Amino acid sequence: MKIQIELFGASRDFSDQNFIELDIEHNSTIKDIRNKIVEFLDKKFKGNENFKNIVNSSAFCSENNNIVSDNYKITSNEKIAIIPPIGGG
């Protein structure tokens, strides 16, 4: 199953587009998606630790604009957004 991850904030540096597409298993969780994104970043950016930290500290949002936990299951070809933390001064 294909899933589209919309990119916001610092995660926009992951792609030239506003999203990345990943192939995932049916009933994958947000935790699985985090791991898939890290794999994608390892291949594309040769293990950029800053990017991995962004993924691991980010919240994820469902199509319904709800923040979802790591055990949230993806059951269809829905869009998920990654929402990195925003630092301020």
Rank of each mutant, 00 (worst) to 15 (best):
P84E: 05
N66I: 02
N65V: 03
N18Y: 07
F19N: 14
T75E: 15
I20Y: 01
S11N: 07
L7N: 03
E25L: 15
E39K: 14
G88E: 00
E25G: 04
I33M: 12
K44S: 05
N18M: 11
N35M: 12
I54Y: 00
I86S: 11
R34Y: 00
E6S: 10
S58C: 08
Y72S: 05
G47I: 14
I74L: 12
F14N: 07
S11A: 15
I54L: 05
E21W: 08
N71I: 12
E39V: 06
R12T: 14
I54P: 00
F40T: 09
G47K: 09
L41S: 02
G88C: 04
E63N: 12
T29F: 00
G89P: 03
D23C: 08
I20L: 08
I80M: 07
A59Q: 09
G9A: 02
F8I: 04
N64T: 14
I80F: 02
I33G: 10
E49K: 15
P84C: 10
D23F: 13
F14M: 12
F19L: 10
F51G: 01
K2H: 11
N53C: 04
F40Q: 07
T75I: 15
D13F: 00
F40P: 11
S69L: 03
F40V: 12
S69V: 02
D32C: 12
S11M: 04
I83Q: 07
I24R: 08
S69H: 04
K44M: 08
I74A: 06
I3K: 08
E21N: 13
K79F: 14
F51T: 02
F19P: 09
K79A: 04
K44A: 05
G89N: 06
S15M: 03
D70K: 12
I80P: 01
N66Y: 14
S76V: 05
N27A: 07
E63C: 07
K36A: 09
G47W: 10
I83M: 13
L7T: 11
F8G: 04
V55C: 09
I30L: 07
D13E: 13
I20M: 06
K43N: 10
A10Q: 10
G88T: 06
S57R: 14
I67C: 02
F19H: 15
G9F: 01
D16F: 12
K52H: 15
I37W: 01
E63R: 11
N50E: 12
D32I: 06
D32W: 03
E21H: 04
N64P: 01
F8A: 07
G47A: 12
N64I: 07
I67Q: 03
F19A: 13
R34N: 03
N77E: 09
N77W: 05
D70S: 15
V68C: 10
I80N: 00
D23E: 15
R12W: 00
I24E: 06
S15K: 05
N18H: 11
S28F: 07
K73S: 11
F60G: 01
Y72L: 10
F40N: 10
E39I: 11
E6G: 08
K73R: 15
N27E: 07
S57C: 05
